[in-house]
Simulated scan of single mutants.
Amino acid sequence: MLLERIYDEDLSQASYVVACQSSGEAVVVDPRRDVRPYLDLADRHGLRIVAVTETHVHADYLSGTRELAAATGAQVYLSGEGGQDWQYGFEGTRLHDGDTVRLGKVVLTAVHTPGHTPEHLSFLVTDGAFSEDPGYLLSGDFVFSGDLGRPDLLDEALGGVDTRFEGARQIFRSLQEKFLTLPDHVQVFPAHGAGSACGKALGALPSTTVGYERLYAWWAPYLAADDEEGFVAELLDGQPDAHAYFGRMKRQNLLGPAVMGERAELDELTPEALRAGLDGDRLTLVDVRPVEEHRAGAVPGSLSVPVPDKAATYGGWAYDPETDTRPVVLLAR
């Protein structure tokens, strides 16, 4: 079995390629919008991407599920849990608690773990070449290294009213019934690391185990004492502000981001064309130089989004394509 983590430092986001090397079949879990890394990895290992899935409707980045399926012909699998309000608006085989995706000798089993979102799935991974029992858990935004997914985003990003309390109680039950019932040796691979706003104290380690979290996670004493009230209060206290674009990402990912396909090289504008576009208010200029250089001298009205550090996150704050439909021009060296 192959299990590879592809990590986006900007978004502190992890996606996973799981494959049966004997059959050459692979599934990608939680792909990001830029699907080239998955295609390159599959080519390197001689794999066919036959399935694409995601743990939940993401708020912090645009999903690449539809894009990758279109590029490879892979079957899309989506959560069918969470009730009518959380059903995806695009085609895909619906997965419910206990459903499986098989790739040769490798089996992914869907586990409904609501709380961060109502439809959230985790995936138990069994390498049938070695064991009949699962050895790995792709936990999405349910369990992180040292932390848990925040349950308040429906309030913060989508205008919900006090859904955070039910979400926190759902996470408590998901831990009790789905996570802590697993053997200690099960290795846990989360969808985010340190720097993500999907929790308040995410660790930087790429993985953890059920046993380690059972012993040392901040929430472990609350579960051991069956103290749901204390758990809810602690989980909700001190969550960071949700990024301004989270609501937009939720809406677009639920409906399904548009498939872009192969993209042409960017055009380079002449200074004259840029000046005419700006004077006519027909362009949005994004200045990707370091902040100090932008402050020292910049085009009036330009947006400062320095690269490479957190450019996608900053860009999501600064530019909203739902309200600004003008073409974007990057000022870069």
Rank of each mutant, 00 (worst) to 15 (best):
D162K: 10
G203C: 07
D267V: 15
F246S: 00
L154K: 03
V186D: 04
E268D: 09
V186W: 04
E234I: 00
E265C: 10
D162F: 12
K178Q: 14
R164I: 02
I171V: 15
V232S: 03
A197C: 09
G247V: 03
P206I: 08
G230M: 12
D241L: 05
K250G: 01
E156K: 14
L254G: 04
R275T: 15
L274G: 04
F231K: 02
R173Q: 14
A157P: 05
K250R: 09
M260Q: 09
A224I: 02
R275I: 11
R150K: 10
K200S: 12
V188G: 02
K250P: 00
A191M: 05
D226T: 11
R275E: 15
M249K: 02
D162C: 10
R173M: 13
V210S: 05
R173N: 11
T270H: 07
L215T: 12
D162L: 13
F179Y: 11
K200W: 05
F189M: 08
L153T: 05
V161Y: 15
P183H: 11
F189D: 03
L266I: 05
G261R: 04
A191C: 10
F189T: 02
T209P: 03
P240D: 08
G193M: 08
R251D: 04
A233M: 09
L175K: 01
Y212P: 00
P183F: 11
L158R: 01
S174R: 00
V259C: 07
L254F: 09
L175Y: 03
A258S: 06
T181H: 10
F172M: 05
E268W: 12
A217Y: 03
V186M: 09
G199W: 00
V186E: 05
L235P: 01
P151W: 01
L182V: 08
L254K: 14
F172H: 03
W219Y: 15
D241T: 06
M249P: 00
A264T: 09
W218R: 02
H185C: 08
E166D: 13
E262P: 05
A242D: 05
L175Q: 01
Q187Y: 09
S196K: 02
G160N: 10
L266S: 00
A204C: 09
A242S: 14
P221E: 05
V188C: 04
D226Y: 13
V232H: 02
P206R: 12
P183C: 12
A233S: 14
G230A: 13
A276C: 08
A191T: 03
G261S: 08
G256W: 01
F231W: 04
A276W: 10
E262K: 10
D155V: 00
L254W: 04
P190D: 04
T181I: 10
T208G: 03
D162T: 11
A220M: 08
L223P: 02
L153V: 11
T181C: 10
T209D: 07
G193N: 07
P206N: 11
T163K: 13
H185F: 14
R173A: 14
D155Q: 06
